[in-house]
Simulated scan of single mutants.
Amino acid sequence: MTIDIEKWSSDLTERLRGVYGERLLFAGLQGSYGRGEAAPDSDIDIVVILKSLSVSDLDSYRAVLDGMPHGELACGFISGERELLSWTPSELFILYFDTVPLYGSLGLLSRLFDEGAAAGAVRDGACAIYHGGCHNYLYEKSADILVSLYKSAFFVLRAKYFCESGHYVKKRTELVSLLEGGDLAVLELWTSLQSDGLGSAEFRAASELLISWSSEVISKYS
């Protein structure tokens, strides 16, 4: 299945403007489509910011998506302006750098976080991965969960590289040429898992790599 994401995004934006009018402050694209690395089965990650948000607004948004071709692939983030501006700085850092604007601007957010927010994104992400990796290895023993944790590690690696270089790199294909050591090993394994999956014999080794890597990151960013 091929989606013309530029046409799809333009169509969505026009529909949102028609529904919300001046209350629509921002619409943007995240995820693999935002990075230009989408696969045929990729979700379409959309960010929508309204002046204020009610459950009726959510109903309207759902109706818009239901009327869109491939609307079932849509996911993402929707918020009112006041709630967004009160968000944690580490989350705002990720939202700001990871979102491609379709309508409006997120420029205001850049004044709400600093370098500490990027470090917080690294630390918080690594903590979640460490806990998830240990929990999954002991209890669920799920290859799917482990692959999802490696995907989360990709987001942490982008924030980590920003902390260490001052540059935010969105694309996996660009980031892989810039990393080394354990960071590179984690990213390369996630790339492999996307195409080849994970066999039962590889589960322990992949878990060990991720748990060890996240432990080192936690120690460095504590």
Rank of each mutant, 00 (worst) to 15 (best):
L16K: 00
L16Q: 02
L16P: 02
L16C: 03
R17W: 03
V19G: 02
Y20D: 07
Y20G: 02
Y20H: 13
G21N: 06
E22R: 14
E22M: 09
R23E: 11
R23G: 14
R23I: 03
L24A: 08
L25C: 09
A27P: 06
A27E: 08
L29F: 08
L29Q: 06
Q30F: 06
S32D: 09
Y33V: 07
Y33E: 05
G34M: 03
R35P: 07
G36W: 06
A38K: 03
P40W: 02
P40R: 02
P40E: 06
S42Q: 00
S42V: 02
I44G: 00
I44K: 02
I44C: 02
I46F: 01
I46L: 03
V47C: 06
V48Y: 00
I49Q: 01
I49E: 00
L50M: 07
L50G: 05
K51A: 12
S52F: 09
L53S: 05
S54N: 09
S56Q: 14
D59P: 00
Y61R: 04
Y61K: 02
R62V: 08
R62L: 11
R62W: 02
A63I: 00
V64R: 03
V64T: 05
V64Q: 00
L65K: 04
L65E: 04
D66S: 09
G67L: 03
G67T: 00
M68A: 05
M68Q: 04
M68C: 06
M68Y: 06
P69H: 06
P69T: 02
P69M: 01
P69V: 01
H70K: 11
G71Q: 03
G76E: 02
F77W: 14
F77M: 10
F77T: 10
I78H: 01
I78F: 04
I78R: 03
E81A: 11
R82F: 07
R82Y: 11
L84A: 05
S86R: 15
S86A: 15
W87R: 14
T88G: 12
P89T: 11
E91F: 15
E91I: 14
E91K: 15
L92Q: 07
L92F: 03
Y96M: 08
D98K: 12
V100L: 15
Y103H: 15
Y103I: 04
Y103D: 10
L106E: 09
L106M: 10
L106Y: 09
G107S: 12
L108F: 11
L108Y: 12
L109D: 03
R111Q: 15
R111F: 15
R111C: 13
L112G: 11
F113A: 10
D114R: 12
E115V: 13
G116C: 10
A119Y: 12
A121V: 10
V122E: 11
R123D: 10
R123Y: 15
R123N: 13
G125N: 10
G125F: 08
A126K: 10
C127K: 15
C127T: 14
A128E: 15
I129K: 07
Y130D: 13
